[in-house]
Design a protein around this nucleic acid. Structure first.
Lengths: 173, 173
DNA sequence: CTACTATTTTAGCCAAGGTTAACTTATTAG
DNA sequence: CTAATAAGTTAACCTTGGCTAAAATAGTAG
């Protein structure tokens, strides 16, 4: 029963919990949020989830357009680490959402809407990545974590991250 | 095949990036990583994804056990913001993974394995939440963002976050 | 122009995570 | 003890995001 993280104030559910020992002092410091609020939090995560993949595709397509001049689905497949068939299907979805445009058997382009999403996404990605590095996270890890985290940072958090990176920068130069 | 950037480490898109300043000179500094590495990053995100929901359920069940003495699926449903049928199905999966145990129509318990997962998950959650607050993020936002981010923070990042929170604490007291 | 190769799409499969609606089991009020 | 209500399960369905295998299209070499 090793909990070297007592400082967090929330002591995990390690003990069996006879009903008569629901200690008030614990509940107070450490109560669950009201159900509906709790539900809203999870809903937010689920909804972020839905757009995550789409954003990743759009961001990648934008990167390919910028760096290679064109975005072919074979490259998308290779970089996403999925099959071409999967790319085809996802692209169909992106098209139906009017984020991507393309003619059959031709390479991919972003619509206005897609460009806007890519720009947002790219910006967030950059902010999170820069922040993690400013924090002291290694380059390799920062890249992986940023990929996952970028979709879950709210504007407020992004602003704070950006400020932090800037201050760090100023301090160290 | 082509990738002239193969030797360049991925620098990422680091600048703040006013939209009208997507300059060519940036492109150099801003190469794509090699395909296979890129693919591995996305694979990592996908794999984190797979366990996310399971961890959230397990964590919630642990919380309910601790705070209410029992974990009923109706409460899980209310707090997750999903239907009871969904909980039933997910719990079936958790049982098949030996994370949860329960008898039909009775409340839920964690197995050893489930407890271990809950403890880990809880710890990470707490670290991320505390970190965000130490950074200056509001309580409300910190809760939402922590829920989403906790699954994407590697051990290295968690360690750094924890250190940061501790220093912050020491500094302000 | 034809044939070969590379790329893209389509079809059919699967598991996960959601939904409603209908059914079963538990709990509780009279 | 019985009947009403609450809680949990099951069945049937949907969408997403993977996969493989096969078909269609594009690009290229002879």
């Amino acid at each position: 029963m090793l909990l070297p993280y007592e400082q967090i104030g929330y002591i995990g559910a390690m003990t069996d919990f006879p009903n008569d020992v629901t200690p008030d002092r614990l509940c107070k410091a450490d109560a669950l949020p009201p159900s509906d609020q709790h539900a809203r939090q999870y809903a937010a995560v689920r909804s972020a989830h839905e757009t995550e993949l789409l954003e990743d595709y759009v961001e990648l397509i934008a990167d390919l357009l910028q760096h290679q001049g064109e975005a072919r689905s074979t490259d998308v497949a290779a970089r996403m680490g999925v099959s071409q068939a999967t790319v085809s299907k996802t692209v169909a979805r992106l098209k139906s959402l009017e984020l991507v445009s393309s003619k059959p058997y031709r390479s991919l382009f972003l619509t206005e809407k897609g460009e806007a999403m890519a720009a947002m996404s790219h910006q967030r990605h950059a902010i999170v990545l820069k922040f993690l590095r400013a924090l002291g996270v290694s380059d390799h890890t920062a890249r992986i974590d940023a990929e996952g985290m970028e979709h879950h940072a709210s504007q407020e958090t992004l602003d704070i991250m950006q400020r932090f990176s800037r201050e760090q920068e100023r301090g160290s130069s």
